[in-house]
Simulated assay, not measured.
Amino acid sequence: MARSDEFGDPVELEAGGRVVAITNPGKVMFPSVGPGKEERTKLDLARYYLEVGEPLMRTLSDRAVLLERYPNGVRGTSFFQKRIPDSAPGWLTTTTVQTINGTASRALVISDLAHVLWAANQGVLGLHVWQFRATHPEEADELRIDLDPSPGVTFEMTREAAGFTRDLLAELGMVGFPKTTGSKGIHVYVRVEPGWDSFAIRGAVVALGRELARRHPDLITDRWWKEERGERVFVDFNQNAPHKNMFGAWGARPRVGAQVSTPFGWDELDSIDPEVLTIDTVPARVAERGDPWELMDDAECSIAPLVERFAADLADGVPDPPWPPQYPKMPNEAPRVQPSRARRPD
Rank of each mutant, 00 (worst) to 15 (best):
E39F: 00
T93L: 08
E38I: 01
K27A: 13
V33R: 06
R255D: 05
I110P: 02
E6W: 14
S61T: 05
N72M: 03
V233I: 08
S111V: 15
I110M: 12
F132D: 04
T154P: 08
A170P: 04
T135E: 09
L108S: 10
D270V: 00
E193V: 13
N72G: 00
P217E: 14
E38W: 00
S87C: 04
I22Q: 06
S150C: 07
A312I: 05
D236M: 02
N24A: 15
V318Y: 02
T181D: 04
L277E: 08
T99L: 10
D273T: 13
P71A: 05
E275H: 07
I100P: 01
S183V: 10
R309D: 09
G203Q: 08
W224Y: 14
Q98K: 13
A204G: 08
G8D: 10
W196N: 14
E294V: 15
N24H: 13
E68Y: 08
A46K: 15
V256F: 12
P217V: 12
L143Q: 05
D313Y: 07
E227Y: 03
D62R: 08
I220P: 03
E38V: 04
M1T: 10
V318N: 01
G8Y: 08
P331Y: 04
R58A: 15
S32K: 14
P194E: 04
H128C: 05
V124Q: 00
E139C: 01
F199C: 04
L314M: 03
L67A: 01
P305I: 06
D222M: 07
L125N: 06
K179S: 10
V11P: 06
A134Y: 01
P194M: 11
N101T: 08
D291V: 06
I279Q: 02
G152L: 11
A213D: 02
T278S: 11
F80T: 04
H243Q: 13
P31S: 08
P331S: 09
D273A: 13
A315V: 01
F247Q: 00
G251M: 13
A15D: 09
S183D: 15
P328V: 01
Q131I: 02
I272A: 11
V33H: 03
V256P: 14
V97A: 06
E227A: 11
R344D: 10
R285H: 13
W323A: 10
R229S: 01
L169Y: 13
